[in-house]
Simulated assay, not measured.
Amino acid sequence: MRNDDSPPPPESGSSVNPDRPWFTRRSTLVVGVAALAPAALAGWVLTQAFAGSGSDGVRSAPQPASHSALSPGQRDAKPGSTPSESASTSPSASTSSPAAAPAPAPAKGPLTGKTVVVDPGHNVGNFNHTDEIDQQVDIGTARKECDTTGTTTNAGYKEADFTLDVSRRLRTALEAQGAKVVLTHQADRPWGPCITERARIGNEAKADAVVSVHADGVSAGNRGFHVILPAKVKGGAADTAKIVAPSRELGERIAGNFARTTGSAPANYLGSGTGLVVRDDLGGLNLSTQPKVFIECGNMRDAKDAAQLTSPEWRQKAAQGIADGIVGFLGG
């Protein structure tokens, strides 16, 4: 049974009568809807484009995407990461990621533009290479062994371990003041270097100051530190005439600051209580063309001095005292 309001189906092969009222109304409606469809679609697109932000500026949560529709970087992202975070993990995102932050600029300070060479006395490997370090080298005024093992505390703490630790702390302190610091070695070689090479490193660096770090090994009861200065010597490759005066000033600065910072007294067994000793038999000094001193920070064979030398806190003070002396010498 057909409802009176529904249009009758057209007969096969016949044309639709344009005068029928119900068709006219329906045709007008269809045309109108067709005309409105593109506008509605455009409006929907605009609505979706702006749906990410509400009037209060809070972004609405995105709809979850299917796993297969995500990029490899998004699929591998950690839970809770944002799309931008996920994209940064994908290989393709690396081309558009921001450049890495530049390395921090070197510290500026009173030693800016200055070069300091720090020479950690001996090398722990020397104990296993006695044949190599016993070879004789020319120090200008004589011939001496290439290097020695250095001493130890009665408990076996090696001078070479002490000197390297203090030297690294000293480097840090000097770099904080703006200096360029060169270490003659960092126990990164089996033995040595020879005393001739140690001197050459300072010369080739055109160092403004060179300090060789040591600890003494004399009998118990002999306590305190001393700084060794170059004597005026000339012979062979040795000629210290130009460095004697500035080396003494460097040594005096270090001695004063070392005593004040560490609380250690000048040696009671040489130097007449001044903490300063002049020697002409050390190749590291004889062959240097740059201001240079040695510092013997204490006596490893004395129990009281050894207690200080084996203390990390005291070694930090020792490094700071030496650094302060160098700053006083080079920084005015």
Rank of each mutant, 00 (worst) to 15 (best):
M1V: 11
R2H: 08
D4S: 10
D5R: 13
S6Q: 12
G13R: 00
S15V: 09
S15T: 09
N17M: 00
W22S: 13
T24Y: 04
T24F: 05
G32S: 06
L36A: 15
A40L: 12
V45E: 07
S55L: 10
R59Y: 11
P64Q: 11
A65L: 10
S66C: 03
S66D: 12
P72H: 02
G73L: 01
P83T: 01
S86T: 08
P102Q: 10
A103I: 04
P106Q: 12
K108R: 04
K108F: 02
L111Q: 06
D119Y: 07
P120H: 08
G121K: 03
H122V: 08
F127L: 13
N128R: 09
H129C: 05
Q136C: 07
R143Q: 14
T148Y: 05
T151I: 06
T153H: 03
N154E: 04
N154L: 11
A155W: 01
G156L: 03
G156V: 07
G156N: 09
K158V: 02
L164I: 04
D165N: 10
S167R: 00
R171E: 15
E175N: 05
A176D: 15
A176R: 04
A176G: 15
Q177S: 15
T184Q: 08
H185E: 07
D188G: 08
W191F: 15
I195P: 02
I195L: 15
T196A: 06
E197A: 14
R200Y: 01
E204I: 04
V211N: 09
S212G: 02
V213H: 07
S219W: 00
G221L: 03
R223M: 10
H226N: 01
V227A: 11
V227T: 12
P230C: 03
A231M: 02
K234A: 14
A237S: 08
K242V: 00
P246N: 13
P246R: 14
R248A: 10
R248K: 15
L250A: 14
E252P: 08
E252C: 05
R253I: 00
I254A: 09
N257H: 13
R260S: 14
T261S: 09
G263E: 04
G263P: 01
G273T: 01
V277S: 12
V277I: 13
R279W: 00
N286E: 05
K292A: 15
F294T: 10
I295H: 15
E296D: 04
C297D: 03
D302K: 11
S311P: 13
R315Q: 15
K317L: 05
G328N: 10
G332N: 11
